Amino acid sequence: MSRRAALVGQLGAAIAQHELVPGAVLDPEAIAARHGVSRTVVREALRTLETLGLVTARQRVGTVVQPVAAWNLLHPDVIAWRGRGADAPAQLRELTRLREAVEPAAAELAAEHADPDQLAALHDAVERMRAAAAAGDVAAFAAADAAFHALTVTASGSAVLAQLLGTLEAALRSRYAHELPVFGAAGTRSLEQHAALASALAQRDGQLAADITRRIVRETGERLGAHDAG
Rank of each mutant, 00 (worst) to 15 (best):
V41L: 05
A210C: 05
A195L: 06
R84D: 02
R214M: 03
A147G: 08
S174G: 07
L165H: 05
E169F: 03
R128S: 10
V37T: 10
N72M: 05
T63W: 00
R175N: 05
H35K: 00
H113E: 09
A196F: 12
E127K: 12
D211P: 01
E100S: 13
A159K: 09
A16P: 04
Y176L: 11
A110I: 02
A86T: 10
A202G: 11
V160Y: 15
G23V: 07
S199D: 14
A226S: 09
T56M: 06
A70Y: 09
A32G: 06
E44T: 13
R218W: 08
R82Q: 11
L11N: 01
G136S: 09
L74P: 01
R214N: 02
P76V: 04
Q91R: 06
M1A: 15
L168Q: 13
R99W: 02
G136Y: 09
A162I: 01
R3F: 06
A150Y: 04
R82N: 01
S174H: 04
S2L: 10
I31K: 03
R58V: 14
Q207E: 12
L191R: 01
D228H: 12
Q17T: 15
L201A: 09
V68W: 09
L180F: 05
S190P: 00
E94L: 12
E112Y: 07
L180E: 14
H18L: 15
A6M: 12
A111E: 00
P89H: 02
R214Y: 00
E179C: 11
R130L: 07
P181D: 08
V21A: 13
A185E: 11
R130C: 08
A144M: 13
E108S: 11
P89I: 05
A105W: 02
G187H: 07
R189N: 01
A162D: 15
T51N: 12
I216S: 01
R60V: 12
A140F: 06
A131D: 14
P116N: 04
A209W: 06
A162Y: 13
R39T: 05
Y176C: 05
M129N: 06
A196L: 14
H194C: 08
F183S: 01
H178R: 15
E94T: 11
S156P: 08
A105G: 02
L224G: 07
S2A: 08
R47T: 08
T51H: 14
